[in-house]
Computed example of a mutant assay.
Amino acid sequence: MNGRDRDGTGRARSARPRDGLGRPLPYGASGVERQAEGVVRSPRETLREAQRLLDAGMPFHAHEVFEDAWKSGPEEAAPLWRGLAQLAVGLTHAARGNAVGGARLLRRGAAGVEDVAGGAYGVDVPGLVRWARELAGRVEAGGPAVDAAREAPKLELEA
């Protein structure tokens, strides 16, 4: 045994607590509760939970919600969920100060959702694409530090 943390199935999985941006904290520190993996949610529940996490400044955790939808949902919806996960990770990296990775993932996520037909599930695809490209440009230009909660996008079209 190599002493690595393992989950109930024996897969390597760090048991270290994490902060709101998903950074590992020392063992014993208070962290943010991690998202359970493999949760199957309706598209509406996915968007609601991800928006709650984004608004709380926890885009890393929102990305895990999108990843669950991507892996458990219908294949035709995968591009939307994958793109949204990439946008959340891009915001995570930007908020951590990783301008190159943040901008790259924001642009990749924008390209991934851009072709999603008609704002599937009420997602504001054009608004998200504009938000991601604008934030990527600011991050690359060395703009002010990114506050994940303040920069959180609105996922759905206004009713």
Rank of each mutant, 00 (worst) to 15 (best):
A78S: 12
R104P: 00
P59R: 07
E75G: 02
E140Q: 13
Q86E: 13
F66L: 05
L128H: 01
G38N: 11
R41P: 05
G73N: 04
E49M: 13
P126I: 10
A94E: 03
A36T: 14
E45C: 10
R34Y: 01
A111K: 13
L135C: 00
E64V: 08
E134M: 00
V123P: 01
A50I: 09
E33T: 14
A85I: 00
L91I: 02
A29W: 06
Q35H: 11
P79H: 08
D124V: 02
P26E: 14
P74G: 13
A117H: 09
A29R: 07
R104Q: 12
A132T: 00
T92P: 10
P59V: 01
D68G: 12
E45S: 15
Q35S: 11
E45R: 15
E49A: 15
V100Y: 14
K71N: 12
D124A: 14
L128A: 00
E49S: 14
L54D: 02
A132L: 03
L128E: 01
D124Q: 06
A88H: 06
G119L: 06
A136P: 01
Q86S: 09
E37D: 15
L106I: 02
A136W: 04
L135V: 01
E37M: 09
E33V: 14
E140T: 11
A136N: 01
A141E: 11
R96Y: 05
G118V: 03
A103P: 08
A56C: 08
R52V: 14
V39C: 10
P74R: 15
E37F: 02
A110F: 07
S30C: 00
W131V: 03
R96I: 01
V125C: 05
P74D: 15
A99L: 11
A77V: 00
D124F: 06
A136G: 00
G137K: 04
A88G: 01
E134P: 01
R108P: 00
G57L: 13
R52W: 07
A78Y: 08
S30I: 12
R107S: 05
P26T: 09
G109T: 07
H93W: 13
T46S: 15
